[in-house]
Design a protein around this nucleic acid. Structure first.
Length: 880
DNA sequence: TCGGTCACG
DNA sequence: ACGTACGTGACCGAA
């Protein structure tokens, strides 16, 4: 019986991981703490989850490591440890001392070798042991008693390795990991390996021959001429690489595992060091109180307005008020109105809905043009509309202001917005009302107290937000675009779009039949019943039972997405059936059942909610239901649109979409001569691109060339990478790179733009759209290549996507005004990023076709014309 | 609650 | 040190 648990941490490796995964944190005295912080969170996780009885942290010694004696270039390729990291090592040791955790470094040896030596002891003494590291090489030490916890995805996760999981992932035993590395090398340590041998080839060889030595002894039997030559030629490198990769397990240290007994830390001691590093957020985890300032707002004095006393408050109904509308329920179209919070000159009242319904003075004030300040104007407008109330005259919506100031924030509910603007906090609705919204059941006193705080904080946030808008030069964008748009959207949402329920149900029945047939056939072909909707079960059928080749893996197992299944086409008759099943299943669950559930009981229509403060680029999004992703690309799905119909007889659906708006915006912003010229000529842009990229005349552009050119154009908009394009087109990276090169040869202005915008983002820390919408990109200077690259692509894409969003928003505001001015009965119903959908009485059709096209095309003047295509029909499906 | 998948621009 | 196109939301199964 052995109830010991020995954990050994690879100190350098964890610190490295933490350093590169986290932004450079500073404490008040300017000390960098990100590696220390990351190390600490990992340590706490280990202590809490694993409860080790014995514990040690091993570090590399700062001096020459013995491997250098064999191979001068060992680790030469690796960038020198940055000063910001090396200065943190002493602090990590100090931290460990406060935790009373032993740590060790041994002159001339790496942490690997110390760990190798100690785990050998653990093996011999049969002590269950875990190595915590970010270094895959350590997998060679795995055994019956020794597991590796490999740090993944930054530092947020660990993946556990036992002999069985290594077998599963690589088909190798732990000691073959060094053969693998000998053959394939490791660029990060500058271990050469054999040129042309990557992980795939190395694994194939090892599966066939078992060890690197056997591979080298049997080169004759290896398939592939080039491979044979390389193995022969770089034989010595392979041998040396394997030696370099081998962890030495006989470091001369006298350190019995029994001496590493860990009896835990003293909360107070650890608290002291956390205080030094300012790890406030971790205090509670070690049993110390976090010394955070109390920023919560004190109780606010308020009065509940009733029929008896409302005369006393008439004077508050004036020009300088903050207003908050309290709802019960999350869906605004089904929500109950609870009451109103009103603030003027530091006086606060709470007006229960019942009172508001009676108080005509208040209702008149609601509609008056008196410069109210609110949070979420659109929500207020829609909720009030459902209760036959109207609100007008709002000058400032603090939610929208906060969104413009930084659209990348994750939340814009009142609590978060006011916290950012004023620094003050109040309880969340959930904390006040409990999990389910049951505000009706709380008395007016309790609800009033909460609402009074909310409206008080709107006031406290107002000024800071206005100033920040001004400083960022976004006042015009705010007042002339986003604020009016909120009202336009409110009307669209409240209007809703009519659906033909019978039509939907009919399609549903048809789909049910097809799905059940498909299910039977798939089960038959699989030879057993299983849940086709479960990627896990499907993976087991396809790859374990039917033995199809594994194309891609996910974190949790086999990948079975459409890309993968496409590559398996032709290998088994089950594949096309599964693809078909997936397609129909999606239609049924999301677009038949899903939409039917959302039909409003009172109107029989679909009332979506647009989120005006969600996307980082300035686009809208649509929820409950999402009407911005109704199928169109495949005919079977497209028919869903047949159930989107006008709400009155002899009306039609009219749809207008911008043609190539993003590429036109790019042409304008980049000022690229060729691209501008192409649009001025009215050319088919994808054909034009194909001509340039493939160097052929218009008549010689094949449909396949056009398809590839189209993908290149998309790639350009997304911030192109050769890898991304190669994935999309299923071509090699080299081919993709050459497409891109030829594109940039022709469209040099575009290339210039891409370079400049990234440079500008680095300078300013943000990028902007045509209407000065801003998106911050702090990660554009990140040390981690991936994170930085992502920010660079975002810098290229956001001005394009965001400007297109600006333009259609502008068109919507103008269109709404035009409808009112011209007293038209037509209604704007939906926005789908580059498309507007209306319902139109036939008498207005001719006028509307003109008006919509003109309004959208003239929304803004660019170096290139904007083009709008208008179509109409009896259903949304027929607008093509 | 999270990850995989898939619908849209 | 190290994986990828940009921006979303809904549904399902598995934990």
């Amino acid at each position: 019986m052995n109830n010991k648990k020995f954990i050994i941490l690879d100190g350098n490796s964890i610190a490295y991981r933490a350093f590169y995964a986290l932004p450079l944190l500073n404490n008040a005295s300017g000390l960098h703490t990100n590696a220390v912080y990351g190390f600490t969170t990992m340590l706490l996780k280990i202590l809490e989850e694993q409860k080790p009885t014995h514990l040690l942290v091993a570090f590399d010694a700062g001096k020459v490591v013995f491997r250098h004696e064999d191979y001068q270039d060992y680790k030469a390729g690796r960038a020198r440890t940055p000063g910001e990291l090396s200065e943190q090592f002493p602090y990590i040791r100090e931290l460990l001392d406060h935790f009373k955790i032993k740590h060790i470094e041994q002159e001339g040896y790496e942490a690997d070798d110390i760990i190798g030596t100690l785990t050998l002891q653990a093996d011999q003494e049969a002590i269950p042991t875990v190595i915590v590291t970010g270094d895959k090489d350590m997998l060679q030490l795995v055994s019956e008693y020794v597991q590796v916890a490999l740090i993944r995805r930054g530092i947020s996760e660990v993946e556990w390795y036992t002999p069985a999981t290594i077998k599963e992932e690589y088909g190798l035993a732990p000691n073959q990991i060094i053969d693998l590395k000998g053959l394939m090398g490791d660029t990060s340590d500058n271990i050469p390996g054999v040129p042309g041998v990557g992980e795939k080839t190395a694994l194939k060889l090892l599966h066939q021959f078992d060890s690197m030595e056997r591979v080298l002894d049997s080169i004759d039997e290896v398939s592939g001429k080039r491979l044979k030559e390389n193995l022969e030629k770089y034989r010595d490198d392979a041998v040396m690489s394997k030696e370099l990769a081998t962890i030495h397990r006989s470091v001369p240290i006298e350190l019995p595992i029994d001496s590493l007994l860990y009896t835990g830390y003293e909360s107070e001691e650890v608290g002291k060091i956390f205080e030094k590093f300012e790890f406030n957020s971790l205090m509670e985890r070690v049993g110390q109180e976090a010394t955070v300032e109390d920023k919560s707002l004190a109780e606010v004095d308020f009065t509940i307005v009733t029929e008896e006393n409302w005369d006393d408050f008439e004077t508050m109904l004036c020009d300088d008020c903050c207003l908050y509308v309290e709802l019960d329920g999350t869906n605004v179209h089904r929500a109950e109105l609870i009451g109103f919070g009103l603030e003027h000159d530091e006086k606060v009242v709470y007006i229960p809905y019942q009172t508001a319904k009676q108080w005509t003075g208040f209702q008149e004030w609601l509609q008056a043009d008196n410069g109210k300040v609110v949070h979420d104007l659109k929500q207020a407008k829609v909720a009030l509309a459902w209760h036959d109330l109207r609100i007008e005259g709002v000058a400032l919506d603090i939610m929208l202001a906060s969104y413009l100031i930084n659209p990348s924030e994750s939340k814009f509910d009142l609590q978060e917005v006011v916290k950012r603007a004023s620094g003050q906090t109040i309880l969340s609705d959930e904390e006040v009302y409990g999990k389910k919204a049951v505000k009706n059941k709380l008395d007016a006193e309790q609800v009033g107290a909460h609402v009074a705080k909310k409206v008080t904080l709107i006031r406290k946030s107002q000024q800071a937000l206005s100033e920040q808008l001004q400083e960022a030069d976004m006042s015009a964008l705010f007042h002339d675009l986003e604020m009016p748009l909120a009202s336009v959207l409110a009307e669209m949402e409240y209007t809703g779009i009519n659906v033909d329920l019978q039509q939907l149900k009919g399609m549903g029945q048809q789909l049910e039949g097809q799905l059940s047939d498909l299910t039977n056939e798939i089960h038959q072909q699989a030879g057993q019943q299983f849940n086709i909707n479960s990627p896990k079960q499907l993976g087991e059928i396809l790859f374990d039972k039917l033995g199809l080749p594994v194309i891609k893996k996910t974190k949790t197992g086999y990948s079975t997405n459409a890309d993968v299944l496409d590559k398996l086409q032709g290998q088994h008759e089950i594949i096309p059936q599964i693809l078909h099943y997936r397609q129909l299943g999606k239609l049924y669950s999301t677009y038949i059942e899903g939409l039917i559930k959302e039909i409003h009981p009172q109107t029989g229509r679909l009332h979506t909610s647009y989120n005006q403060a969600t996307t980082a680029t300035g686009r809208l999004s649509s929820v409950e239901p999402n009407l911005q992703n109704i199928p169109i690309r495949l005919e079977e799905g497209r028919r869903i649109r047949q159930s989107f119909v006008p709400s009155e007889d002899s009306w039609v659906i009219l749809s207008a979409d911008y043609s190539q708006i993003e590429l036109r915006v790019l042409a304008h912003i980049a000022g690229d001569e060729n691209l501008v010229e192409a649009f001025l000529q009215g050319a088919d842009i994808h054909t034009k691109t194909a001509m340039n990229v493939f160097g052929v005349l218009a008549d010689d552009v094949t449909s396949d060339m056009r398809r590839q050119a189209k993908a290149v154009n998309f790639g350009i908009i997304y911030g192109i990478s050769d890898y991304g394009l190669s994935q999309n087109l299923n071509i090699t990276r080299k081919e993709a790179a050459s497409f891109i090169e030829r594109y940039f040869d022709v469209f040099q202005g575009v290339q210039e733009y891409m370079k400049d915008i990234v440079e500008k983002a680095k300078q300013d820390g943000y990028v902007t759209t045509l209407l000065n919408r801003r998106r911050y990109l702090p990660e554009i200077t990140h040390r981690n290549f991936n994170i930085r690259s992502f920010a660079e692509r975002t810098a290229m894409n956001t001005p394009i996507q965001g400007s297109a969003a600006d333009i259609i928003k502008l068109a919507m505001v103008n269109m709404s005004r035009a409808l009112t001015e011209k007293k038209l009965r037509s209604r704007m119903l939906l926005q789908v990023h580059d498309e507007l959908v209306f319902e139109v009485p036939k008498e207005e059709l001719e006028q509307m076709k003109q008006l919509v096209a003109e309004t959208m095309e003239q929304a803004i003047t660019l170096r290139v014309p904007l083009k709008v295509e208008v179509s109409w029909g009896d259903t949304w499906y027929d607008t093509k």
